[in-house]
Amino acid sequence: MTTHNVDVKSHSKKYIKVYLALMVLTVLTVYASFLTVSVGVGIILALIIASVKSTLVAGIFMHLFGEKKIIIWTLILTIIFFIFLILIPLFSSLDSIKY
């Protein structure tokens, strides 16, 4: 992020808002874990909340919103391979020969 003309006040306000949002989401995720829902729904709920939180951290604290193209593309590439790494072993274990 270029820092030549950062408006310090508006930035610190934004950071504090994000901070409060993160705290609320933390409470929410703990609360959600006590709901009586099936395991599948619980996992999805928790992962959605974690994704929102991580988007806030990466996007605002790490300045990814509005970051330069080269960094965005590097991350997109990483995410593709990350998905390969997560999913392919999973699929292969689901599709294994049963004895």
Partner: peptide
């Protein structure tokens, strides 16, 4: 950036290990 990343990992570790 590094420190936020460490935070980010924890944001996932917390629900995955403790809550699910």
């Amino acid at each position: 950036l590094y420190w936020h990343f460490v935070d980010l990992v924890w944001i996932f570790l917390f629900p995955v290990l403790y809550l699910l």
